[in-house]
Design a protein around this nucleic acid. Structure first.
Lengths: 258, 258
DNA sequence: GAGTGGATTTCGCAT
DNA sequence: ATGCGAAGTCCACTC
């Protein structure tokens, strides 16, 4: 028994070969990769046109589409998962049309030259883990509040208040209420104003002094001033340090378990 | 003379072939596409691991990297343009390491099976045009203010005030100051609060009545109430209509020119 | 189904 | 370089 992957690879196929192969691959929900000279029309939430040039087209098994230029991280045109496809041949132009409902959008790609075409099924059950997210920081502060300051007692996190959510809410060693806003990267004006809003809205409710602490790896340059003006505080905290703490804790709890 | 594109396509190449081809392609700044079984480590602004599975790797000529799973619009791992690459072979594992400075980040991809490899140079000078963006809306309002209301006279756009930038600023038919905040899609709480901030900060400066108008195709459900509470107004405007107006105007100015 | 906020956001523009 | 806001943002989660 052969374990060879069923992969179709065509180098400079004719338009007819392309059409046949693409249709077959679409019906079997295979991934399709095409490199060639193409132009693209998009119509939906906005509208765009892309003049002819050499690009890579990827159609995935879930109905997502990517058109990549030779440069840049982002696709120049795309569709999120869920598209329905039509492919056709018109006067030696190979065209693929991807249609999405909700919102109604149409992406049309026209090829006049095809350099190669690949179609295959890929299996990917591999777990993806991301560390040092904002959520990790919140969790780390909850289990080790001294990361922010000694004597801090977190009460709740994600507490709902009028303007939105407070990341962490607690009581400091002197019994004062503390509101903490967490950012996983350089905190800007936005974060400060958000924290300020939270503090103000809480003041309206409890009518007592409230400390607002912005926790982030860094604070943007001009923003420190705004922070002080609003009577808020800043505490530097590295997201990676938080990830480390969680990792260690996790390892320890496994030890305890066995 | 042959016009055949210099494309290298290898089906199930050996690791040695892969290494040689990838190194050559990297040095010639060619685009590389690999499909195979791989795992990925990322370390930089955050950190991530991706367990083995079948994916597509794309390396572009500008040093951007994309690792795509068989599903989803977004790459599972990536690097923006500007990476420096190292490739190597270790105990029958083919590895590619992409390093970026500023911020310092490392992306490592390990292949134990390679289904196919393609390397090519693509030329793409095609113009890309996007219509019905927020910028189009702003432009359309500047040249046809009646889109918002009759008698409106726009004075400036992108006016700097304390909290940020005002999209459009002008005077209405009764001589009152008008601040306009534009959104190209359903305006939410965020947009209303932003507009409110702008209006308030301008009031502090000029000490006279100021109208704040939110211009968007739609306003979110609960948000209308907030808008009214804050004494602001809403004007429905479709971004596509704005695009149409600009298009017509462009066509007319071309006519005038010839 | 709509609303809300985060993102390894990326990207572009202005300071 | 840094800051700032938009994006056809996408995506996950809540109501």
């Amino acid at each position: 028994m052969s374990n060879e992957k069923p992969i179709i690879i065509l180098k400079t196929p004719t338009k007819e070969e392309t059409l046949e192969t693409v249709r077959s691959a679409l019906s079997r929900r295979r991934i399709i990769i095409i490199a060639g000279n193409c132009w693209v029309d998009y119509q939906g939430r906005a509208r765009s046109t892309l003049n002819p040039g050499e690009r890579i087209l990827i159609i995935k098994e879930d109905g997502s589409v990517l058109v990549h230029r030779p440069k840049g991280y982002e696709p120049v045109n795309w569709q999120p998962p869920g598209c329905i496809f039509h492919s056709d041949l018109r006067e030696d132009i190979f065209l693929i049309k991807a249609v999405r409902r909700k919102p109604r959008e149409t992406l049309q790609i026209f090829f006049d030259e095809i350099y190669f075409l690949a179609a295959m099924s890929l299996v990917d059950e591999g777990e993806f883990s991301l560390y040092a997210s904002e959520e990790d920081m919140q969790e780390a502060i909850m289990i080790q509040p001294s990361l922010v300051e000694d004597g801090l007692h977190p009460i709740t996190y994600e507490k709902k208040v009028e303007p939105g959510f407070i990341d962490v809410y607690g009581i400091d060693k002197n019994g004062r209420m503390v509101v903490i806003e967490i950012k996983r990267r350089t905190a800007g004006k936005e974060a400060v104003l958000q924290l300020s809003k939270y503090v103000d809205s809480l003041k309206n409710v409890v009518n007592r002094e409230i400390r607002g602490i912005l926790v982030a790896p860094k604070i943007a340059k001009g923003v420190q001033k705004l922070l002080l003006t609003l009577g808020l505080e800043f505490k530097r905290l590295d997201p990676k340090k938080c990830a480390e703490i969680l990792k260690k804790r996790k390892a320890r709890s496994l030890e305890d378990f066995y």
